[in-house]
Nucleic acid binder design. Sequence first.
DNA 1: GTTTGTGCAAACAATTTGCAAAGAT
DNA 2: ATCTTTGCAAATTGTTTGCACAAAC
Lengths: 151, 151
Amino acid sequence: MLPNDTSVFLAHLKNQKLRKTRVRLRIFSTLLSSTHALTIQEIVQFIPEVHFVSIYRSVEALQKAEIIKQVPQGFTNRFELSDLFRPHHHHATCEICGKTQEVDDAKIETLLQQLSVEAGLSPTKHHIELYGVCASCQISEPLLTSQNLID
Amino acid sequence: MLPNDTSVFLAHLKNQKLRKTRVRLRIFSTLLSSTHALTIQEIVQFIPEVHFVSIYRSVEALQKAEIIKQVPQGFTNRFELSDLFRPHHHHATCEICGKTQEVDDAKIETLLQQLSVEAGLSPTKHHIELYGVCASCQISEPLLTSQNLID
DNA sequence: GTTTGTGCAAACAATTTGCAAAGAT
DNA sequence: ATCTTTGCAAATTGTTTGCACAAAC
């Protein structure tokens, strides 16, 4: 029986001596079913039956347990499931409609490793974000200038 | 007479119909003399004679005028002079001591352009941040310095 | 039964807004 | 003289803390 996401999640909770609670299950399933990383306020809104303070505290606990991770996106901090559940990737975002997609490319990874080494660092991690205008927004380009909504 | 940074600054103010004020000059010179991007609180502390609300407002004005720009660094937002004053670059940061250096590489720029196009976006901009451990921190591990900027 | 997690109130921190006075052109 | 910017007080927003009760083990 190969472990699905939920059993990996439960195993990690146990492993970290964290209890299996309603709140943590809800946060996990919310992130699992989301196509993109969520801000803490978005998580709060998705789970209206739970007090926001509990969300803050559970998010912190899950983060320490490396079940979820915080990712900076523009000037916003978002949360998504950790690499345990989703392979390493980066994000490409349309500046007009805000739609985000995942990007993964081996070349960029090795190039970044090299750059780190050239800078005298033993590489640990990196962040990349790409921004542009997607095909459909190029056609029906609204009046937004360079200075827009996305942060 | 070739324009130095300050005259470019003054020209841009005029150009944007912004007045030349003590506060804006102080913010500009603070960023000009800083080796790395500063948080708004750091700017506030560097300029104690100016009320923090005025710093917030001037920073916003200078940003709209594209004299300074906001850069996300880890989970912190920082400000630095715009590309008018400093060429396009990215940052490589040591996770132990927080020391930051600038990185510029043509290969990465073209590769990111390509990746954007592959993702169906007409590229506009990108963010990259590299993290690692620098040589001296590898030798003498911890001992976190005052400059631990990383989140 | 013991320990951990949750909900609520209240504290704290960061940023924004309204308005009158000071400063720039 | 006019219009912009600044300083201050206060409002607003986002996040954290203390503590009593509830839930998990």
